[in-house]
Every structure is written in C-alpha cells, then in structure tokens.
Deep mutational scan, measured.
Amino acid sequence: MDVCVRLALWLLWGLLLHQGQSLSHSHSEKATGTSSGANSEESTAAEFCRIDKPLCHSEDEKLSFEAVRNIHKLMDDDANGDVDVEESDEFLREDLNYHDPTVKHSTFHGEDKLISVEDLWKAWKSSEVYNWTVDEVVQWLITYVELPQYEETFRKLQLSGHAMPRLAVTNTTMTGTVLKMTDRSHRQKLQLKALDTVLFGPPLLTRHNHLKDFMLVVSIVIGVGGCWFAYIQNRYSKEHMKKMMKDLEGLHRAEQSLHDLQERLHKAQEEHRTVEVEKVHLEKKLRDEINLAKQEAQRLKELREGTENERSRQKYAEEELEQVREALRKAEKELESHSSWYAPEALQKWLQLTHEVEVQYYNIKKQNAEKQLLVAKEGAEKIKKKRNTLFGTFHVAHSSSLDDVDHKILTAKQALSEVTAALRERLHRWQQIEILCGFQIVNNPGIHSLVAALNIDPSWMGSTRPNPAHFIMTDDVDDMDEEIVSPLSMQSPSLQSSVRQRLTEPQHGLGS
C-alpha cells in the first residue's frame, strides 16, 4: 500500500516538474521574441530617421516606410540591400504576372540599375499617388481596383495617398480587421493593385479616363459626320452624273437629228437641180409651141386668103386666128415678164464666191463646235470609267472633274446653238437673194472655178474651204426642212400651169 502511494507521488512530482520546465521555456521564448521585435522596430526607426529625418517622428509615415521596406525586401531575393535588374524582372513576371514588363521595368529602374530602400522611398515620395486625397483614393478604388463596396470604409478611415504602401503589403490585420475584407480574392486584388500603384505611379486608366471618354465621343461624332458627308456627296454625285448623262444623251439625239437633216438637205439640193433642168426644158418647149402656133396661124391665113369662094369660112377662120394671136401675145408677155430682167453673169459669180467664202467661216465655227463636243464626250467617258472602280463615286464626288465636264457640255451646247442659228439665217438669206436675182447661188462650180473665172489672186482667199464634216446640232433644225426648197423651184409650177393653160385654150379652139 505504501509502495503505491509513493509511486503516485513520484509521478505527480515528475509531471509538475515537466510543466514548470515548459512554462519556463515558453517565457524565455516570449522574452526573446519581444526582444528581437523591439530590436527590429528600433532598426527600422533608425534607418527611417537617417533617410528622412523630418518625417521620422510621424507614426503614419513610419508605418508607410516600414511597408516600403517590406516591399523592397520582397523584391530583393539575395538580401544584399539592392534590387537589381534581374530581381525586378523576376518579381514583375512571377509576382505581378506581367508577361511583357518592358515598360514597367524601365519606369521602375530608370537609369539606376540598383534600387535601395532609400531610392524606393524617395521614388514613392515623388510619386503623384503620395499626394492623393481621400476622394482620389476612393476614385482609384472604384475605377481601377473595381471594389466600390468598400468606398464607405475607405472614407470612414480617411485613407489618403500616404496609406497606399500599407495596402500594398500582406497585412491580415489591416485588410481583415480594419478594412473588414472577408473575401480573400478581394484582399489579394487590392494588394496587387496597390503594389502596382506604389511602384509605377497612378494607372493610365485613372489619369486619362475623362480624356479617353472625350476622345471617344469626338471620334464618334467625327465618324458619324464623315459618313453623313460621304452619303450627301455620294447622292449629289449621282444626281449630277444623272443630269450629265441626260445632257449627253441629248447631244447624241441632236447628232442623229442633224445627220438626218444633212441627208434631207442634200436630197433637197438634188431636187432643186432637177427642177432647174426641168424649167429650162419647159421654157424651150414653150418657145417651140409658140413658134409652131405662129407657123400654123400663118399657114391657115395663107390658105384662107387663096380661097375666095369660102368667105364665110374665111371670116370665121380669121376670127379664130385673131383669138390665137391674142393668146400668143399674152403668152409672150407672160414669158417676157418672167425673163425680162437677167442679172449679169459676173454678178452671179461674185454672189456665188461670196456664198463660198461665208461657208468657209461657217465651217470653221462648226469645227470648233465639233472639237468642244469631242472634249465633252471624252470627259464623260472618263467619268463613266471612274464610277466603275471601287472608290470611283467617292473620288468623283470630291474632285472638280464632274463640274468641269458639266461646264464643257454646256459650252458645247451653246456653241451648237450658235451654229444652228447661223445655218438657219444663212439658208434663209441666200434663198431670198436667189428669189430676187432669179439664178442659182448655193449650187455653184466651187471656189476654185469661181476664183479662176473672176481672175482673182488665190492668195487673197487664204486656205481653201474644208470639206463639210458631220457635226452635231440641236433638234430645232428639224423645222428647217420646208425652207430648204429653192424659190426657183417653187415658181416653176405656177409658170408651167399659166403658160400651158393659155396655149391649150387656143389649140382647142383651132381643133374645133
């Protein structure tokens, strides 16, 4: 029994001894940790006062410096006190997940390849973020970090730009207890964004957000305005092209109309020559008939004078003969009235020469109109080809070629109108001259024959008349068809009918 009691006491004593040793060891460790923490804080404070003595007594600045020092320690893998190029590049790629850190790398180092804690602190103090207000930090939280649900907490804590380094380091107390961020992804996102802002300055999105919006609005307005302008120009170009094509079609119709007119003019001239020949034959025939009538009257007179026994018949025959003579005298007077005045042959040749010289100047004017028309046609064809290209319509709308071609078409039409008026006036004037003179002027042997017949020096006439060419005029020349008939041919039928009527009546009387 005593043995059992003793054994229990030994065990209890051993447990108490072991517990005492454990408590003693724990207290010694706590004392050691407290001592090392105090030494670390003293070291940080001493270093901060050495680097930035004016701010070393500010608790907030001291906390920010400690956060900057921890960031530098995080980047300094070899713990030599300086962050070199390789260490910063590795940190950007692995910790901040930048696949192309060239720009960030140059911004961080600049011309200094080794970055110490002092360099990093001075860079942070010179950053724009260091002077941010609470509102600017909240704006950064909303737009860049995209965590607007913590806006009220940031405003309540009055977190300005000075506190940004403390957000950039992993601090459970700061993010969990103070900021009350329960979501781990939110804490990590805030820490990475803050670290990027401390090292490289304010984000471009935050700094140029309004400018970007303004430029976007301006670009949209310019784009819409450009599209509207292109649409208006395209519609104007199509309308202008439609008008130009309509004018061009009018020129083609006028060309065909003048071609038909020239054919009718040539045909009328041929008919005029035929009528002139018929007139000469008719006059000769009338003279022959008059002579035959005179001979017949003389023969009847002689027969009736030789027959004294038939006085009654003779008297009747003499009366008939007197009627025939009276008819012959009237026919002769009618014929003489139409051919009583004949212009000198020299006057006819001079008038024919005048007509040919006028035709020369008319042909020159006509050729100029043809050239203008050809230029207008070529310009229209070029515009047609340009319209078939990809940007042809837009190019035509913004060039002056369309207006130039339109002006050329209008100029050609005006020139053709002048040529039309000149042709109309010339035909009418020479027709009236032919009526008054009674001989042909338009139809003549040609300028060379006339110059030779009148003994004129050929050098006075200049160049010879160009051959009539096919040219274009407007449709108002169609009503000239009825005026192209020679006035002499219009007189011939009346002359034929009057003479024939007077010759036929006596012959019928003789026949009876």
Rank of each mutant, 00 (worst) to 15 (best):
N80F: 07
D89T: 02
E94N: 12
E94M: 14
E90P: 10
E94C: 12
D82S: 13
E66N: 08
D84L: 08
L63P: 03
D89R: 00
R69Q: 08
D77R: 05
E94F: 14
N97Y: 00
S88Y: 01
N97E: 04
D76C: 15
M75G: 04
M75W: 09
Y98R: 04
Y98C: 00
Y98F: 00
A79Q: 05
E94T: 13
D95T: 13
N80L: 07
A79V: 01
H72M: 12
D82Q: 12
E90I: 04
F91N: 12
K73D: 05
D82G: 09
E86D: 02
F91K: 12
A67C: 11
Y98A: 02
F65I: 09
L74I: 03
G81E: 15
Y98K: 04
E66D: 05
D78K: 12
E66F: 10
D76K: 15
D77L: 06
E86H: 09
D84A: 06
R93G: 08
D89M: 03
G81I: 14
D77S: 03
D84N: 03
E66H: 13
D82R: 14
F91S: 07
R93V: 13
L74A: 10
D95V: 03
R69K: 07
I71A: 11
E86Y: 06
D82F: 12
E87A: 01
E86P: 14
L63Y: 06
K73T: 05
M75E: 12
E86W: 07
G81H: 14
D82V: 08
E86I: 09
H72I: 11
D77W: 03
E86V: 02
K73W: 11
I71E: 08
L96T: 14
K73Q: 06
V68Q: 07
D84I: 09
D84T: 08
D89Q: 05
L92D: 15
D77N: 01
R93K: 07
E86K: 04
V85D: 07
V83T: 09
L63R: 08
S88M: 02
L96W: 14
L96D: 11
E87C: 06
D82A: 14
N80M: 07
D77V: 01
E87P: 13
S64C: 09
V85P: 07
I71T: 01
Y98L: 01
D82I: 12
L63G: 02
N80G: 06
E87V: 01
V83Q: 12
A67H: 11
E94A: 12
D84W: 12
D78C: 11
A79R: 03
I71R: 14
N80K: 05
V85Q: 05
N97T: 00
R93N: 11
A79K: 05
N97P: 11
E90V: 00
E86Q: 05
S64W: 12
L96S: 08
N80A: 08
K73Y: 10
S64M: 14
A67G: 01
D77G: 00
G81P: 13
M75N: 10
D78W: 15
I71Y: 09
E66L: 07
D89W: 04
E94L: 12
